[in-house]
Structure formats: structure tokens, C-alpha cells
């Protein structure tokens, strides 16, 4: 197929691999960043000041240095101390470290957005700290954090393009390869940009949909689904 004066058919394979690689980077990094973010958020809401400060320092240091710097440190820097990471590992790690701090902040906002009154009510009713967390705080914090966490996913997809600098073999790297053969930078990068759009737009729309859908009380767990079903059945049986 020829589009914008470039015969793309010979690059299908490369672009396909690039897309796959972008998705792989995104998936691995996002899962990692969410796990790290959860740890950071829990750390930042701890009673123990040292833990809180440690988590806070981590966030500030990582957030205030460009992502590209972290990529270079991990990929080009570490070999000088004898640690040689593959492009995939170094790239994913940099993304995890960076987005872990941002997602940590989003999660912290979610946790702190659940009013103290909610926790207090849970405690006054004899729920243990863990039960209060599990049944009262967490379900509400997750809903509050949903929009921010989703935005981070879209941001992360785009940020994988930075890995072109360490030949990450993702979509942007493929664009560079094709450009070096065809010398049609404008056309090639417009098409690559369109492909990123096709990845990101449905993602951000899905996030919006989820946000609306889970917004009020849609059950997040099977247990709650069960409770709601019982309650609905009770109501429709309606005694009087």
C-alpha cells in the first residue's frame, strides 16, 4: 500500500513488531508502576515518619529529573559499574521507576481523599484497621484514583517513544529506521504519530467510560456483587 508517497507494504513487519514492542513496554511498565505506586502511596500515608519521609524523598527525586535521564543512567550509565541491562529491561525499569512515583502520588491522593470520617465510622463499628481499609477506604480510594491512573497509562504509552534513544525497537525506533531508508521524515512520522493516536485515543476513551461506569457504586469485587444481588432480590420480593 502506498500512502503519502511511501510504499508501506515492505515495512508492515517492522511496524507490526514495533507496535507489539510498544504494547509490551507499556504493559510491563504499567503493571510495575502500579505495584510500585501502591508501595509508595502506602509508605507516604504511614504513621512512622521515617517511612513517610523515605517514600516522599523517592517521589521528589524521581519526579524532578527528566525521564530521559533515568533511561540513560540505567542503559548507558550502569555498565560502567558492571551492570549491563538489555534495552527492554533498562527501558521498562526506567518507566517503572518514573511512573511509579507519579502513580504513587495519584494513589496517595485517592487514599487521602477518603475522609477521616469514613475511617472513624468503620472503627466505631468494630471493624479492624485492615477491614476498614479493605471494605471502606480502598474501594473509595480506587474510584478516586481511577481517572489519574488512567491518564498515566496514556502518558506512559507515549513515553515509550523516548526509548528510541536506546534503540528500544518500539514504534518510534521503527519510524526512525524507515525514515533512514526512505528519507521521507514528514510522511513517516505523521503515520507513526497516527499509530500512536490509534493506541492512545481508545485507551483514554475507555478510561473515561470506566470512570463513569464505576463512578458511584458499581461493585468492584465479587463479594459486593453478591451482596447487591441479595439486596435487589429482597427489594423486588418486597414485603409490603
Amino acid at each position: 500500500m502506498t500512502l503519502l508517497g511511501v510504499d508501506w507494504s515492505q515495512y508492515y513487519g517492522g511496524i507490526g513488531l514495533g507496535l507489539l514492542r510498544t504494547v509490551e513496554f507499556t504493559a510491563v511498565s504499567y503493571v510495575g508502576a502500579i505495584l510500585l505506586g501502591a508501595v509508595v502511596a502506602i509508605g507516604r500515608t504511614q504513621k512512622i515518619a521515617a517511612v513517610r519521609r523515605l517514600a516522599g524523598a523517592y517521589v521528589e527525586v524521581v519526579k524532578n529529573v527528566p525521564l530521559l535521564t533515568w533511561i540513560f543512567v540505567l542503559y548507558f550509565g550502569l555498565p560502567s559499574v558492571g551492570i549491563r541491562l538489555s534495552g527492554f529491561i533498562a527501558g521498562s525499569l526506567a518507566l517503572i521507576l518514573f511512573y511509579g512515583s507519579y502513580i504513587g502520588e495519584v494513589f496517595r491522593g485517592g487514599l487521602q481523599g477518603v475522609g477521616a470520617g469514613q475511617r472513624e465510622a468503620a472503627h466505631s463499628m468494630g471493624l479492624s484497621s485492615w477491614q476498614g481499609y479493605r471494605y471502606v477506604v480502598l474501594p473509595q480510594a480506587l474510584r478516586l484514583a481511577l481517572a489519574g491512573t488512567g491518564t498515566m497509562l496514556v502518558d506512559l504509552i507515549k513515553a515509550t517513544s523516548l526509548l528510541v534513544t536506546i534503540a528500544g525497537r518500539e514504534l518510534m525506533t521503527q519510524g526512525q529506521v524507515i525514515t533512514s531508508v526512505t528519507f521521507k521524515a514528514l510522511q513517516v512520522y505523521l503515520v507513526i504519530g497516527a499509530l500512536y493516536f490509534l493506541l492512545c485515543y481508545p485507551t483514554s476513551q475507555s478510561v473515561l467510560w470506566l470512570e463513569r461506569h464505576l463512578g458511584r457504586g458499581q461493585p468492584l469485587s465479587l463479594k459486593r456483587r453478591h451482596w447487591l444481588a441479595i439486596a435487589r432480590a429482597l427489594q423486588s420480593n418486597g414485603t409490603r
Binding site: G115, A121, L127, Q131, P139, Q140, R216, L228
Partner: peptide, 18 residues
């Protein structure tokens, strides 16, 4: 201080269940 993410009946039943 009702639990905002739960229906009225679940608010009442939560502590007995949990």
C-alpha cells in the same frame, strides 16, 4: 459518615457481615 460507595442497606449490613 455513611459509606459513600455502598447502598443504604449495605451500609447497615457491612459491620454484621464483616
Amino acid at each position: 459518615n455513611l459509606f459513600q460507595h455502598l447502598t443504604a442497606v449495605e451500609n447497615v449490613a457491612l459491620a454484621p457481615i464483616v
